[in-house]
């Protein structure tokens, strides 16, 4: 039972490492913003999964707040790239 959830968490961790590598490498600021966007979506899924594993409802609220803040952050970065770079 739990082995599947642990497999999922390992896959998600490898995925976030790959996205982080792109965040470090990415030649332009926009590439880094894309990597950050993907990292935040992976983070939401990871938070919900951890909430289930630890049986804590507060992680779900945390994931929702993280989703809202990540979206606003990406929009702000996109506006900045469009006008100022």
């Amino acid at each position: 039972m739990n082995i599947i959830i642990y497999t999922a968490i390992v896959l998600i961790s490898i995925g976030s490492f790959l996205a982080f590598m792109r965040f470090v490498k990415g030649p332009t600021a926009a590439d880094r913003a894309i990597a950050l966007d993907t990292l935040s979506v992976i983070g939401i899924a990871g938070l919900v999964l951890l909430g289930y594993l630890f049986q804590r409802y507060i992680y779900i609220d945390l994931a929702l707040v993280y989703a809202v803040l990540g979206f606003i952050g990406i929009i702000v970065i996109a506006r900045y790239i469009e006008k100022a770079l």
């Binding site: 497999t7 999922a8 968490i9 896959l11 998600i12 490898i14 995925g15 976030s16 490492f17 790959l18 996205a19 590598m21 792109r22 894309i34 990597a35 993907t38 979506v41 992976i42 899924a45």
Partner: peptide
Amino acid sequence: LGSIFLFLGALGIY
């Protein structure tokens, strides 16, 4: 299934 797709998405980003 979802974690496999998340992994593939990150692989695509890379």
